[in-house]
């Protein structure tokens, strides 16, 4: 996870944080009017960006997604106490992709995410990445609003997972197909921009084990959180986020479950590696070093 901090040493990574945040916010805000839960969430086609940018810009996309969501909250009129959890949740939305790609064993395509070769296997791998990224973001935000006593976990857990997954899964592959080779030729993939010593050095076995761990914790957290809401708190499954469930959060079981899950997730993230740097062709790296972007 050290790349999360070391990336701030590089000017281009800092600029990529700003670009990711600006693009994310610029597409989030016009759609704030298409409300799902007023003041909380809306239809968000922009949710494709954290996952796609995460695969290209790595840690810069994680920070950019977090900042972009915050800017979107301010200028979209949805700023509130939940925005802090939105910041953390969206950070993980951009963070998960580059951690998982290539580390999912049999589910991995073994090639970089440009959808030029092994397209079918890339689609499967991308779908898993999008699902895990959506689930972890939903879990963090739903847990946050539960902690704040606003909504039961199941309401936001389901809405945010589906909302994130739809945009990321449907729009992601064509966008990567169109954009990835261009960004690669500019030498702006994080694997090209960051120095090798700034990237995590973790063995393949541990990388894969932790990728599985992040996948399991993310999905189990969302499923268990929804189950606790429905089974223990008595919230109807698929309950619309209407007045009867508003301010019904604050379950101790949910708070403890989330605290444990988040701690485990954080520790695993800190120990994780990434495989994309091994998939980047040496020729691309050479171009980047020479500064031949155009």
């Amino acid at each position: 996870m050290r790349e999360i901090l070391t990336m701030w040493r590089d000017t281009r990574m800092i600029m990529l944080v700003a670009v990711t945040a600006a693009v994310y916010a610029a597409v989030l805000i016009p759609f704030k009017g298409l409300t799902i839960i007023p003041g909380i969430t809306s239809v968000r086609p922009a949710n494709v960006f954290p996952v796609v940018f995460g695969l290209m810009f790595g840690p810069a996309a994680a920070w950019g997604a977090a900042l972009g969501n915050l800017i979107g909250d301010i200028f979209g009129g949805t700023l509130g106490p939940g925005s802090a959890f939105g910041f953390v949740g969206n950070f993980f939305f951009g963070f998960v992709g580059y951690k998982l790609w290539g580390n999912l064993g049999g589910l991995s395509s073994g090639v970089r995410p440009d959808f030029r070769e092994k397209a079918g296997r890339q689609l499967v791998e991308y779908a898993v990445v999008a699902l895990v990224a959506s689930a972890v973001t939903a879990a963090i935000i739903a847990w946050g609003l539960e902690v704040l006593g606003l909504f039961p976990f199941s309401v936001l857990g389901t809405v945010v997972t589906v909302n994130n997954l739809l945009a990321a899964a449907v729009l992601g592959p064509p966008l990567l197909y169109l954009v990835y080779p261009r960004v690669e030729s500019m030498g702006l993939l994080y694997t090209d921009v960051m120095r090798d010593e700034d990237l995590p050095t973790v063995g393949h076995g541990r990388q894969q084990a932790i990728a599985y761990g992040i996948t399991a914790v993310s999905v189990v957290w969302v499923v268990a959180g929804i189950a606790v809401s429905v089974g223990v708190q008595g919230v109807e499954f698929g309950a619309a986020p209407g007045g009867d469930v508003f301010r019904q959060g604050g379950s101790t079981v949910q708070i403890v479950l989330g605290a444990v899950a988040f701690t485990v997730l954080f520790v695993m993230s800190a120990l994780s590696g990434e495989r994309l740097s091994e998939m980047t062709a040496p020729a691309t790296r050479t171009r980047a070093v020479e500064g031949g972007s155009d």
Partner: peptide, 11 residues
Amino acid sequence: CFALGTALRLF
């Protein structure tokens, strides 16, 4: 701070 300020300008 620089990234946030730049994002606000780029937006």
